[in-house]
Computed example of a mutant assay.
Amino acid sequence: MESPHGAALSAEGFGLKGPRGWAFRGVEFTAGPGSLVAVEGPSGSGRTCLLLALTGRMRSTTGHAEVGGERLPGRLAAVRGFSALGPVPGVSELDPSLTVAEHLRERALLARRFDGSLRSLLRRRPGRAATARAAVGTALDAAGLDLADLPKAGRTSVRDLERLEALRLSVALALMSRPRLLAVDDTDLKLSAADRALAWELLRSLAAGGTTVLAVCSEAPKDALTVRTRPAAGPDTPADGTTTGDTPTAGTPADDTTTDTTTGKGTADAIAETGRA
């Protein structure tokens, strides 16, 4: 029997501490393949660090997590191999000076370069171009971005995109590597209520298609499995580590998980200490 495409997620006592405090700690949750997992909390509460740690881009310091059968923090490279980042400020941002088409072309070239398939390297140029066009088209369709709707189609500069359009482009770029886990930061930032609903509809559809989606937000939808982060009083404030209700699994409503975190300084220090990949 074929295994699910999406990566199952779980964490137990998962935490990350920098020189001046905790970025996050006491994370406990379980999510099956194809789940929509929302990391909810205010800015500076460790949401982005948790997202980066669960995708193998940051090394945790306490507890453990398991992503797609790979245990963290030990198997960082393996998790990076099947996860992809959508928009994450300072890590995977769009270049405002490039056009939409230039971003897509660059990502298609990278995807071919790191495909690892001998067949793809030996394929003749027309065949490679057709494969790249098909991959771009599939990713754009999945992200709900129609180039014909943009002011200058593919020649539209990223700086001229609306916030929701930029989010869709970032998601499309991430999908070109066919990830089992897609991570999106600041999902609802600067979106109107209508656009916020469309963004969650997009992520919900990707999860329904089998890709596990991990999305940072300030307010999670009710149908998401929600991991909540919250700022603590200071870098040494102890975590309560409590969880209300049963341990959440795929499809569980949003109220079942708590996460203790610390200040923005702790988050910034943790990023500087562990680095980004």
Rank of each mutant, 00 (worst) to 15 (best):
G90A: 14
A224Q: 07
A194P: 14
L214S: 13
A220P: 10
E102N: 09
A132P: 08
L109Q: 03
R133T: 10
P231M: 14
D149M: 06
L191D: 09
P221A: 10
V213Y: 02
G209W: 07
L140I: 06
L173D: 01
A134I: 04
V184C: 01
T131P: 13
A233V: 14
H103A: 03
R133E: 11
T156N: 02
A197P: 04
V158Y: 00
P235G: 09
V184A: 02
R159G: 02
G137C: 12
D223V: 15
V171A: 11
A224E: 09
A207K: 12
S218M: 05
E106N: 05
S92G: 08
A142K: 01
A183S: 11
E106G: 08
A134G: 02
E201M: 15
H103P: 00
G116R: 04
G137Q: 10
T131G: 04
D141I: 13
S170A: 12
A208G: 07
V213G: 15
A129F: 14
D188Q: 04
R125I: 09
A197I: 08
W200P: 08
S170K: 05
H103I: 05
A233P: 15
L191G: 02
G127Q: 15
L181W: 01
T187P: 01
L169G: 11
D185Y: 09
T156R: 00
R124D: 13
S97L: 10
R204A: 05
R155V: 04
D149P: 00
L203Y: 02
S177M: 10
P235H: 12
L169C: 12
V136W: 05
A129M: 12
V213N: 15
A172Q: 10
L181G: 10
R125E: 12
A233L: 09
A139R: 00
T226Y: 10
D223Y: 15
L118T: 12
L214F: 13
A108R: 07
A139E: 00
L104N: 01
D146T: 03
R119C: 13
L225W: 09
S120H: 13
D95V: 05
K152H: 05
K190P: 10
F114H: 13
F114L: 07
V184E: 04
A153M: 06
